[in-house]
């Protein structure tokens, strides 16, 4: 930001980088971005609780139906996981396009990100349906409850991310998302990357590591 604006203000403590001007902050990180980081820190504990629960219950009690690990289609889930991870790339491209003022590319990459996210969600819906057909529903046993809750919570997070991306797209199309507000997109991007990272963890812990 404009250093000239701040130079005029006396700030005796090196800890403080701003003066009376509104938008510079003590940490140099904007409020919105810091808020998102804190929120994501909190989300870690939410997923931490759910992942711990899954680890405790990864094996069903004997004779209570199939374990999730007996039904996994690892190649299929690997592909949808790859699709989700690629959406982080398109998200980065969207942010950088808007920062460069290229609204067409921003919209393009935002649509791409939302589409990739939707492919992942469709894959999850397909997977859930297949599991239910194979005899493992939400209430079948303790492992199935833990599995559907953990992956379902993640799926809801991705869905909320898609809704935010589509909203950004609409704002942009209506001319309400100028280059100056690129930070809004960056903050949504933080959320999106976080959800991806959580999926890397879940995919490893739930699908790949044998119990």
């Amino acid at each position: 930001m404009a250093s000239a604006t701040h130079a005029a203000v006396t700030a005796p403590d090196p800890d403080v980088v701003h003066g009376g001007h509104g938008y510079a902050t003590n940490t140099g990180i904007s409020n919105t971005k810091l808020g998102m980081w804190l929120f994501l820190g909190s989300e870690c504990l939410l997923f931490g609780g759910l992942i711990s629960t899954y680890l405790l219950y990864r094996h069903p009690a004997p004779g209570t139906g199939p374990a999730p690990s007996e039904l996994y289609d690892i190649p299929f889930t690997s592909i949808t996981s790859f699709v989700l991870l690629m959406s982080s790339l398109t998200m980065v491209l969207a942010v950088s396009a808007l920062e460069g003022g290229d609204h067409f590319k921003f919209r393009l990459w935002t649509v791409a990100t939302a589409l990739l996210g939707s492919v992942f969600i469709s894959g999850q819906v397909y997977e859930f349906t297949a599991f239910v057909h194979e005899g493992m529903g939400f209430t079948t046993n303790r492992s199935s409850s833990a599995f559907f809750t953990l992956t379902g919570f993640h799926g809801v997070h991705v869905t909320i991310g898609i809704v935010m991306l589509v909203s950004l797209l609409l704002f942009s199309l209506r001319g309400h998302l100028p280059r100056e507000r690129a930070e809004v997109v960056e903050v949504v991007g933080l959320y999106w990357h976080f959800v991806d990272i959580v999926w890397i963890l879940i995919f490893t812990v739930v699908y790949l590591i044998p119990g």
Binding site: D13, V16, T25, N26, N31, L38, F39, S42
Partner: peptide
């Protein structure tokens, strides 16, 4: 939770000049 995010950002970001 929303209150916590709000108040932490306030303390960290919005102190008056000189208030380390």
């Amino acid at each position: 939770l929303t209150g916590a995010v709000n108040l932490i950002v306030t303390v960290l970001n919005m102190r008056a000049p000189g208030m380390g």
